[in-house]
């Protein structure tokens, strides 16, 4: 299937990779491909979730709070507690050895990395929800337009009905003319905000070369070498934090854009609904008039 040739010489992998459990190496290997799982959760899946069994083969089962990387550096939970309360139980920061302080620095760096990663995770979730909200708003806009089209169709049918009602009645009866206060306009098409469209757009910025990341550059994801001393470990964590913060910054910028788009779309909906309300109000007035005429004719 994969045409690329692989050299028989294998490059030695860092020890962290060796120790890392493969999420694929489970009972999934002999998976029956004829059965396809739907995107919705089945009852069995729900049961698994509540039991705490992981259904996603890629989930490593670690919570966000669990410090996964700290096990690599061989910290004991006793040390964690010591670090958590900033050495209050063991004479404060001043009375610690250099080695203890180095370990503490690594622990703090890891803690910060985890916090930043959690922030990124939350921002990604928000982005996902915001994307869905925008789709729903788009759908809502279409529905408003369709409703307005229907109102225009009702106007057309009502006009014919009014003509028929006008022609009914006795030979000497006074000709009836329906009361109309205003014409039915139908949906008013409002395009996208031209300022947003032409100017402040990510694509335009990209073309102008205003964005930071060069095209097609992928971050080096494989860790170079296992860090040996505390300083290197802290540096590794700092690099991770930088990457995560950079991603977070991009995400927040995008979320701002989404919020602006949501706002302008809702504004458009308000305007469209105002027009629709006016038209429906006029239709209501005319239907009442037509009903009165009908009753009068039946009463004769």
């Amino acid at each position: 299937m994969f045409g690329s040739k692989k050299s028989p010489l294998k490059v030695a992998k860092p020890s962290s990779v060796e120790s890392w459990t493969n999420p694929f190496d489970s009972n999934d290997e002999g998976m029956d491909t004829k059965k396809y799982s739907s995107s919705r959760k089945t009852s069995s899946e729900r049961a698994l979730t509540t039991l705490g069994v992981n259904t996603n083969p890629f989930d490593d089962g670690t919570d966000a709070n669990k410090k996964s990387s700290s096990t690599l550096y061989g910290f004991q939970s006793a040390n964690w507690n010591k670090y958590k309360n900033d050495f209050r139980d063991s004479g404060g920061l001043e009375n610690q050895s250099v080695q203890e302080l180095e370990s503490y620095a690594v622990y703090k760096a890891e803690e910060t990395t985890n916090s930043v990663t959690n922030c990124l995770k939350i921002a990604e979730n928000i982005r996902e929800e915001a994307t869905q909200t925008l789709v729903t708003l788009h759908q809502q806009g279409e529905q408003i337009t369709r409703s307005h089209h229907v109102a225009a169709d009702i106007d057309h049918d009502l006009t014919r009905g009014e003509k028929l009602l006008g022609s009914l009645g006795g030979l000497f009866s006074k000709t009836w003319k329906p009361k109309k206060t205003r014409a039915i306009t139908g949906p008013v098409i409002v395009g996208d905000d031209p300022v947003r469209r032409k100017g402040n757009h990510l694509e335009q910025r990209e073309k102008l070369g205003l964005t930071s990341a060069p095209k097609g550059q992928s971050k080096l994801r494989s860790p170079p070498q296992e860090p040996t001393n505390a300083f290197e470990k802290v540096e590794v964590e700092k690099n991770k934090q930088d990457d995560a913060l950079s991603d977070l910054s991009d995400l927040l910028g995008e979320l701002k854009g989404m919020a602006v788009d949501m706002g302008s779309e809702i504004e458009r909906h308000n305007k469209a609904l105002n027009h629709l309300y006016d038209d429906v109000d006029e239709l209501n007035f005319r239907v009442i008039g037509a009903n009165q005429r009908g009753r009068r004719l039946l009463g004769k």
């Binding site: 799982s37 996603n56 990124l120």
Partner: peptide
């Protein structure tokens, strides 16, 4: 596997995508 795990830790993959990657 490492790349998939890293991505999945931020954006959990839907079951059908996991199947494709498997």
């Amino acid at each position: 596997t490492r790349v998939v795990k890293e991505f999945n830790s931020i954006t959990p993959l839907e079951s059908w995508k996991s199947t494709l990657l498997l």
